[in-house]
Amino acid sequence: MRRTIRDEGFTLIELLVVVVIIGILVAIAVPVYQRYSRNAWEKSVVSDIRGAITAVEQFRADHNAYPNTASLQPDDFFLEQYPSGPATTTKVTLSDSVMLTIWVNWPAGTSYRICARNAAGGYRRFLYDSVEGGSIRVRTVTNASVCAYTP
C-alpha cells in the first residue's frame, strides 16, 4: 500500500518570486506617490499666491496704496499700511509649510511681486509680478533674489 504524502507550504522559489513582484510594485509606486505629493505642494503654493494677490489688491482698494513689503512669512499675517503704519485687518492666509514674501516696488509703490515656496516641497519658487499680470511663473532658484526688486 502506497501512502500519499501531501506537501504543504510554499517552495523557496515561489517565495522569491512573490518578493520580487512586490519589490517591482514598490519601485513603481514610490516615484508616483512622490510626484503626486510634489504636485499637491505646488498647487497649495499657487493657491496661496492667488489669495495673497486678492488681499493686496483689496488693501490697495481700501487704502489707495500698496502695503509695506512683507518679509518671508511662514504663517498667516496681516498687511501693513504704506509707507509705515499699524497692521490692518487685511489678512493673507497661508497653507501649511508655505513661505510667502511680498515685495513692493519702492519708493514708487506702483507695483509688487509675490514670491512663495513650500518648505516641504523643495526649492521651486513661484513668482507673480503685478506689472506682467497673468499667470504665476515657476522659478527654480535657491534664494529669493530673483523675486525682489533691485534698486
Rank of each mutant, 00 (worst) to 15 (best):
P107D: 10
I53S: 00
Y36I: 13
S44F: 02
A52E: 05
E8P: 01
E57S: 08
D129P: 01
N64I: 15
Y128W: 05
E80Y: 00
R3D: 15
Y149A: 00
T54L: 09
I53Y: 05
Y82M: 02
N118D: 15
L16W: 08
G23N: 09
A65R: 04
K43Y: 09
G134D: 07
V104Q: 02
I5P: 07
R117G: 01
V56I: 14
A40W: 07
E14V: 09
Y36R: 12
Q58W: 08
V46E: 02
K91N: 08
Y33Q: 15
V138K: 12
V19M: 15
S84R: 08
M1E: 15
G23S: 10
T90Q: 11
T69P: 01
G121L: 00
R113L: 03
R60W: 10
A148Y: 02
E8T: 13
V30N: 11
N68K: 10
R125L: 07
P67I: 02
D62H: 11
S84D: 13
V26H: 06
G122H: 10
D62Y: 10
F10L: 14
I114K: 00
P74T: 10
T142L: 05
I21H: 07
D96N: 14
V104M: 06
W41G: 00
S95F: 03
Y123R: 13
E132W: 06
I5R: 15
G122W: 01
G85M: 06
F10Y: 15
Y82I: 03
V45T: 02
W103S: 00
S111W: 01
V104L: 01
S44R: 09
I53F: 00
T101D: 03
R38F: 08
S95H: 06
V30I: 15
V20M: 15
Q81I: 08
R124I: 02
D76M: 04
P151T: 11
Y128P: 00
Q81C: 04
A40K: 10
T89H: 09
F78K: 07
D96T: 10
T90R: 05
